[in-house]
């Protein structure tokens, strides 16, 4: 895995929000990770863990308080040249949670999807523009007859497809999907997930998949990072994370996933996470690669303890 190409690298990224004069919320607090080309990187955590802020800071919706973001080796946070900025805008796209809120209700589907094409001047004629839009619509399972319609004429699942088509139109390399399916019905969720997986294969995409639904994240991701209060507490391949959860927060999170299986549900034992088990006044915790490709946020003595737990 080490020799795989890194598409996005986040180094010591922090994003703090000021609340009034003295209070500071450390929404993202000194996190680092890399995303390899062609993988799906899952970012999970509960509300307030900073997972969405991370995604938004990467795509430059927020300015980082400190830290760096690199794409294909070039730095993309802060002030960058106009060309670099255009490159980032084109190559990182985002899919949002609420497909109604992210589509302009007064624009036709054709214009919504073509907006990125226009900005990046990717088409030269009206015909080429329309062909590209139709191609995108067909890619996500819609067709030509939808061109002239407005967002309110579509169902939730269809709107999410339009959101995906818009993101795909400029042929990005990385897509940040922030809870793309949590507003959809169960039967529609599977359609959208299958679509995202197909696109990834055919269009050579990389995903940063932000979600709270652990069984879905496990299904779609190659690697998963677990966030808690602005920190990444554990990062591993999805297989490894579910087999060998080390951090007590990860354990509690995994023990709470509801499964459609009454037999296991009856036997379920939940762990609750109590942050006071860590004694971080004495020892300073840091993120450590405990076994290859498995990182955990812990103090030296905890590392020793975790090492004995690995199966």
């Amino acid at each position: 895995m080490e020799n795989r190409e890194i598409i996005l690298e986040v180094k010591n990224l922090s994003r703090h929000f000021k609340l009034g004069m003295k209070k500071v919320v450390k929404a993202v607090d000194d996190i680092s990770f890399s995303i390899y080309k062609g993988e799906t990187f899952g970012l999970v955590g509960e509300s307030g863990s900073g997972k969405s802020t991370t995604g938004r800071t990467i795509i430059k919706l927020y300015k980082p308080t400190s830290g760096e973001v690199y794409m294909n080796g070039g730095r993309i946070d802060g002030k960058i040249s106009r060309e670099d900025n255009a490159y980032v805008n084109k190559n990182i796209q985002m899919i949002f949670q609420d497909p109604m809120a992210c589509l302009n209700p007064r624009m036709k589907v054709e214009d919504i999807i073509a907006e990125g094409l226009d900005i990046h001047k990717m088409t030269t004629s009206e015909k080429q523009r329309r062909d590209k839009v139709v191609e995108m619509l067909e890619l996500v399972g819609l067709d030509e007859q939808h061109l002239e319609r407005y967002p309110h004429e579509f169902s939730g699942g269809q709107r999410q497809r339009i959101g995906i088509a818009r993101a795909m139109a400029v042929e990005p390399k990385l897509i940040i999907a922030d809870e793309p399916i949590s507003a959809l019905d169960v039967s529609i969720q599977a359609q959208v997930i299958n679509l995202m997986n197909d696109l990834k294969e055919h269009k050579d995409l990389t995903y940063l998949f932000i979600a709270h639904d652990l069984s879905m994240v496990k299904y779609i991701s190659d690697r998963i990072a677990v966030m808690y209060k602005g920190k990444i507490v554990e990062l591993a391949t999805s297989e490894d994370l579910f087999k060998n959860p080390l951090h007590p927060y990860t354990k509690s999170l995994l023990s709470a996933i509801p499964l459609p299986d009454p037999i296991t549900e009856r036997k379920r034992k939940r762990f609750s996470y109590d942050a006071s088990v860590h004694n971080y006044d004495v020892e300073t915790p840091e993120i450590v690669e405990i076994i290859p490709n498995h990182f955990v946020y812990a103090s030296p003595s905890e590392i020793e303890k975790y090492k004995t737990e690995i199966k």
Binding site: V186, S187, A190, I193, N194, S215, K218, I257
Partner: peptide, 22 residues
């Protein structure tokens, strides 16, 4: 059946069997 197959559990691999349409 469709509801159960369209939802991944922790062992699901391969394509999800989605219910087509709306």
């Amino acid at each position: 059946w469709g509801l159960m197959t369209s939802m991944p559990d922790l062992e699901t691999e391969g394509k999800l069997l989605a219910i087509p349409g709306t």
